[in-house]
Write a protein that binds this DNA or RNA. Structure first.
Lengths: 340, 340
DNA sequence: CTGAAAGCGCTAACAG
DNA sequence: CTGTTAGCGCTTTCAG
């Protein structure tokens, strides 16, 4: 029954012998139109399988109905970003918006004028030129995690509430007998990496413990991780009894390295990660980690983006801020000594 | 120097005292326009920071410039999809197109009339109603992996060349001493899962080996996997000496379960996965897997999509087909007995 | 309560 | 070689 080309407002109007505008008002529910008319329009619309042409609608409204999403380069392995992305897509969909992904190797040309109403940039890194361009462009940018010092300010910032969780994790490890912790950091120029490092250091200082920090290239090859773990476990004076790995991919290598060096993870060596992922629950022993609630985080990014779009339209240049709670997932890798 | 609103073709035209169309032709390079004129237009365009308004351009061209991407539900953990997505985004970008993601919980309403020039659906599952809707909709669909029997045919199919790789993997395991293999399958209604199962069964039949197939819910909880592995290893008559796990998340649990049951993976138990991911190289022992080249796969999907778009415009309804080679990554988990 | 008409920014006949 | 003009499908004043 339906023709090859999509039905337009004009088709509906013609069918009813009314004008386009009447049909439009009836469909959007915005204008003054009789109840009877609205009913008939809806009916014909349904019959013709009418879908408003979003392109035309957006052209008219000087909007695009789109949110651009920038993930950090080299993020492909982290399920965190995948989850966050789905959260973003889900919430955008509820607002009738579409999420498109920026290519990792974005050509800088034109990136300051994307066909989008807002950009969401997750974990913006200080050394990511694309993010710099984005931030100085025309479209409002919301970052997932704040921008590191030295970058232009975004129009919105959604932040995970890392500090209390990191402290809770440290306290938990302490309770389970940790005396000589080490942290394995990726060399990422992101706010998240910086925060975790600083809170770790602060906690250690408060406890009068020497903070051992190992920085590894990102992404790190297994041998590199293995070497770093071996170094930590072989230290003569105070062999490490807990290793905190910032990224979830790395922690698996940490565990297997430690095991191959004769350590029993969860017993004589505690291990945890600062970002959770499905495989950490599947591993054996299961690995304690901080659940960053990426899906909810993504949803909040979209809400911040919508707020920023409205604000920008109203000439309001306040920065939207949101804080997302996170949770420590205690698992077997930090259960502590079975027998002393 | 640049005003608040974005520059338009009219702005350029006014500045040069020419007409919009001249500016348009000069920018797109399509029309007949003097070299001199083109140069001046380009110059002013650069100066004003002109970017063509894609929304307007697409409205005019009755196109959207967008490709919709549908990932299977419950795919969040698999890095395969993330890689494939980046390949898709990258290649689409080269063609000046944008990739937006469909929400997992897509409302069926209107899905047959998406604002997209093509849809790419990865691993379409027989029981996914959204894919059915998509396939009977107006916009051409390209599937990554063929649709299972019983679904409408898509306009394009990109397939991984699984069979030779699965055979190569089986031969490899056989060489390394495998006598009693088992396969652990997720209960996915996808072509991929069906193919892998069938090739496994065929290979076993040719060798006169009894094919042991265990089907697990997807996603499977670690205890479930552990239970299945325990059953396989405890079989009295012919305890299994090789476990093939279809999904990459599951294989990690298989390894740790086997280890906790006293097996030495890579020595007295061979383990491999049918889809590779970064963590499999990082695990210890590193795990043999089939590298599906997801990035390249994604790129091919886009090329097929572009071909399908052109074909559809030309009224041509041939189905575009592509076969992507895959590669077995041999790692420590299938090294075989150190000493017999 | 409804119709006519303008226009969002762009492209592509068709004239000159 | 360039200008004029007519839309793409939609929303939204402004008249009636």
């Amino acid at each position: 029954m339906r023709s090859d080309r999509a039905a337009t407002l004009q088709d509906i109007a013609d069918r009813l012998g009314v004008s386009r505008s009447t049909a439009s008002f009836a469909i959007t529910g915005r204008g003054r139109v009789s109840e009877e008319m609205r009913r008939r329009v809806q009916e014909v619309a349904a019959e013709l399988g009418y879908r408003p042409n979003t392109v035309a609608r957006n052209l008219r409204g000087a909007r695009t109905g789109m949110i651009a999403l920038r993930l950090p380069p080299d993020s492909t392995a982290m399920s965190y970003y995948m989850e966050a992305t789905f959260g973003i897509v889900e919430e955008a969909d509820r607002a009738g918006m579409i999420v498109f992904m920026l290519p990792t190797e974005q050509r800088p040309e034109g990136v300051d004028q994307l066909p989008a109403d807002a950009v969401i940039a997750l974990d913006p890194a200080l050394d990511d030129p694309v993010v710099h361009l984005l931030l100085s462009g025309r479209v409002p940018v919301i970052t997932g995690e704040p921008v590191p010092e030295g970058m232009p300010s975004p129009r919105g910032e959604v932040t995970s509430d890392h500090e209390p969780a990191v402290r809770e994790l440290m306290d938990h490890l302490h309770q389970r007998g940790m005396a000589h912790p080490a942290i394995v950091l990726p060399d990422l120029q992101s706010h998240w990496a910086f925060t975790v490092r600083d809170v770790f250091a602060a906690w250690c200082a408060e406890q009068g413990i020497r903070p051992r920090v190992v920085t590894l290239p990102h992404p790190a090859a297994p041998e590199v991780i293995h070497g770093a773990v071996a170094d930590l476990l072989r230290e003569q004076d105070h062999p490490v009894d807990a290793i905190l790995s910032v990224s979830d991919g790395t922690v698996l290598s940490v565990v297997t390295s430690a095991q191959s060096l004769g350590r029993r993870v969860g017993e004589d060596l505690l291990v945890a990660a600062f970002v959770d992922s499905e495989v950490l629950a599947l591993a054996q022993p299961s690995i304690t980690a901080i659940d960053l609630h990426p899906r909810e985080f993504g949803r909040r990014c979209v809400r911040a983006a919508l707020a920023a779009i409205d604000a920008a339209a109203a000439g309001d240049d306040r920065v939207v801020r949101e804080l997302v709670p996170v949770a420590v997932q205690r698992r077997d890798s930090t259960r502590g000594p079975v027998a002393r």
